[in-house]
Simulated assay, not measured.
Amino acid sequence: MAKLVTGSKELARKLAAIKDHVAAELRAELVKAGHVIADDARALAESSRRTGDLIESIHVTGPGETTPPHSTDGGQRTAGPFEVLVTAGDSDARHAHLVEGGTKPRMHRDGTTTGTMPAQPFFNPAWRLNRRRLEQRINRRMRKAFREATK
């Protein structure tokens, strides 16, 4: 049975302890979830392997860390305090979006055309395969952390 909290100082102390404990547990679970998605994206990207640069460019960026150059919209981004970013692409592999979505023929000014490449999605399927299960796992971890902190 939970102890009865009396007084505003004790309540503030207890709430701060809950916040800190739940935040630490949540960050750890988010990073684990990011690694699950990244591992599955790497496995799904195997079918498009030529040099391995694309597979090696799949990174997990934890809270407060910065993504590799050229991984998100051609730049870098710093993850928020409760955010984990899984990105594909870096300075050596800038073609993740072309593999994911494929290409269509395109006419250049000099009259030449680019070839077509069928889509070989790896990133979005990895997210869709894991999303529901990881959300449930994160929610369970938060509830458990909250229970532990309120004992």
Rank of each mutant, 00 (worst) to 15 (best):
R133I: 10
V36H: 03
N139S: 14
G74C: 11
T87E: 14
E46Y: 00
S91P: 00
F122E: 11
K9T: 12
A12K: 08
P63G: 08
G34L: 01
V22Y: 13
H21Q: 10
S71R: 14
R42I: 03
L44D: 12
A24I: 07
T112D: 06
D53R: 06
V99H: 01
G64F: 02
A17I: 00
D53S: 07
P105W: 03
F123D: 13
A24W: 10
K14C: 04
L85G: 12
H21F: 12
H95I: 01
P63W: 05
P81A: 05
L85H: 13
F122C: 05
F122M: 11
G62R: 15
L15V: 01
W127F: 07
R141S: 05
I37F: 03
D92T: 12
A12W: 01
E10S: 06
A41S: 05
A145V: 00
L11Y: 05
P68Y: 07
K9D: 14
T61D: 13
D90F: 02
T113E: 05
G74Y: 09
R147C: 03
I55D: 06
S57H: 03
T51N: 06
G111E: 10
E46A: 11
I55P: 01
N130P: 05
E148C: 00
P121V: 13
L54G: 05
H35Q: 08
R109N: 08
G64P: 02
E46C: 01
L30H: 10
R128D: 03
A126G: 08
L85C: 14
I55G: 04
E83V: 02
P69R: 12
G75C: 09
E29Q: 08
A88T: 13
E46P: 00
V99A: 02
T78G: 02
E10Y: 06
A79C: 07
L30C: 07
